[in-house]
Design a binder for these strands. Structure first.
Lengths: 295, 295
DNA sequence: ACCCTATTATAAATTATTTTTATGTGGACT
DNA sequence: AGTCCACATAAAAATAATTTATAATAGGGT
């Protein structure tokens, strides 16, 4: 069986018109007719049915079943091409969430450069959900993912390499600045400045407010932790961030949370279980684990 | 690209010998050579390498990457064939764990017969792990699965339809027979007769003994709940089973467990997310939900 | 009722692809 | 040096896919 036939059929289920599909692929119309006939013979079933009354093409039950599988075969093949291309080019594409890229990547990059691996590395940015899809679709080889729950997906091999608590950051002028530790419930009447672009931060924060039964007063949301920290320094409000964002500023104080069963910011290295790691990629993994785990 | 080439290559990665693969497929040796050359051209990479010194065939990095994807494409195609065959034959294959088959299926079968659906249904038995693989590999369309944790797999659509506690069953002559409820920790010095063939029962039982810090005295393990119940009736020991196994015998007494956070026997209906349900299969699902959920 | 159009099917010819047959090559083993 | 093993190559043969040309079918318009 030829993959091309599956491709023709897949398009046919989308466009529902033999002639248009033929044009789409730059072939003549009988080519499509014959391809569908081949598939119908191979699977010994009718795949499509013409409805002349409504002038449309109906896909049969078995046709829809084939379409589902055809889609996933075609996707798998596309991933295969992408992966092998990257392997032959000796390139690795690494998916990085912005937080990790901002605060850790300089260190990682320095180590990789020392090993001569930086040239072969290309990064793409994105939130955890986006990067999970990018991994799945073969758009990147390895990704770092932030999460609150341990990640569990059959198609992904996941190594958690770091668990970090979330902390509260307040201005040095803030009444709480002389505290070292506190409970989240003490923050009931505070003004919050929050990180907008992190699904993980927001989920963790919502968990804590819900558990402590209060509606937080969120005065501002920003997409950049520097902006948040500057606002906190000016005492516009306080913030809630994972400690990997700790910048050691002397105008901002970090306060630990003492609550039981706090959410944790889990960072994991993930790659497809289907993916064969090259020597270079294994080296990238080692560097990531060393740099990120020990920091 | 022809699927056949992937099949040739897949076998080559297993057998590592062109001539043997040719014989395996009943073709001549150059056929395999040329197929591999086609794939190498398509993916613009070397896939295999001859090691004349050790007289063996090495698969390159990219070759192994292709092999992984080829395997999954070939499996998907096989599933497609199996599914479409069953669709055209109007058959449904239902995977049933023995416990559920023994105690619930008569009721389900009666309802299905009334609807004229029983003839088209074929069942296969097996433990939850086995049935999950059977589902994945297209050997069955729908399966009932027992578990303690909620099931979560990307390729499976899962509906939990019943949660049931585990209970203790003792003989009417047993000192505990006049109790209605008890804590698991009270069973520290009891003799147990356990169900052998259920992964789920054993996991739940182990959870409770570990939590209560004792090593149970297991005097016998059987694969059939009737045998277990007969032994319990004779007061050879007591047992631990989910309540779906309740047989309303008057020589055996069921005792509820009062422990917090008890494990639950979760029964779920599962099918591949890739699977298109036919009208008949949807009817089977409805009957299953009604019969099993309300019991 | 007739023609027109849109859409798909069919047949034969053409072109492309795959497989076979026959033979070559390189190296290990004796 | 000869032989065998394992794979490669070239040309011929066999298959398979595509195109060209044309047919079929049915709905819509007049």
């Amino acid at each position: 069986m030829n993959i091309k036939d599956l491709d023709y059929f897949h398009q046919l289920t989308l466009q529902k018109n033999f002639s248009q599909v033929a044009e789409y692929f730059g072939v003549t119309q009988p080519t499509i007719t014959l391809a569908i006939q081949r598939l119908e013979a191979e699977f010994a079933t009718k795949l499509v049915q013409r409805d002349r009354v409504h002038n449309q093409l109906l896909i049969t039950d078995t046709g829809r079943q084939l379409a589902v599988h055809a889609t996933s075969i075609l996707r798998e093949l596309q991933i295969t091409h992408q992966e092998i291309d990257r392997l032959t080019q000796q390139r690795t594409i690494l998916g990085l969430p912005p937080i990790i890229e901002n605060f850790y990547f300089p260190k990682v990059a320095a180590r990789l450069q020392a090993l001569g691996e930086l040239e072969n590395l290309q990064t793409i940015a994105g939130g955890s959900v986006h990067l999970r899809h990018a991994l799945r679709d073969g758009q990147c080889d390895i990704a770092l993912l932030g999460s609150i729950e341990p990640l569990s997906y059959q198609q992904l091999a996941v190594n958690e390499f770091d668990h970090r608590p979330f902390s509260i950051f307040v201005s040095r002028q803030h009444p709480l600045a002389n505290r070292k530790r506190l409970y989240f419930s003490e923050l009931r009447h505070e003004r919050f400045i929050l990180f907008n672009s992190s699904f993980v931060h927001n989920t963790a924060f919502n968990k804590l407010t819900r558990r402590n039964h209060f509606r937080p007063d969120v005065v501002y949301r920003a997409n950049d932790t520097h902006i948040i920290m500057n606002l906190v320094a000016e005492n516009v409000g306080i913030t809630f961030l994972t400690t990997i964002v700790d910048q050691h500023r002397d105008d901002v104080v970090r306060l630990e949370l003492m609550d039981d069963e706090q959410p944790q910011f889990i960072t994991s290295i993930a790659y497809r279980t289907n993916h064969v790691l090259t020597a270079a990629q294994r080296q990238v993994l080692t560097v990531l684990r060393q740099t990120l785990g020990s920091a």
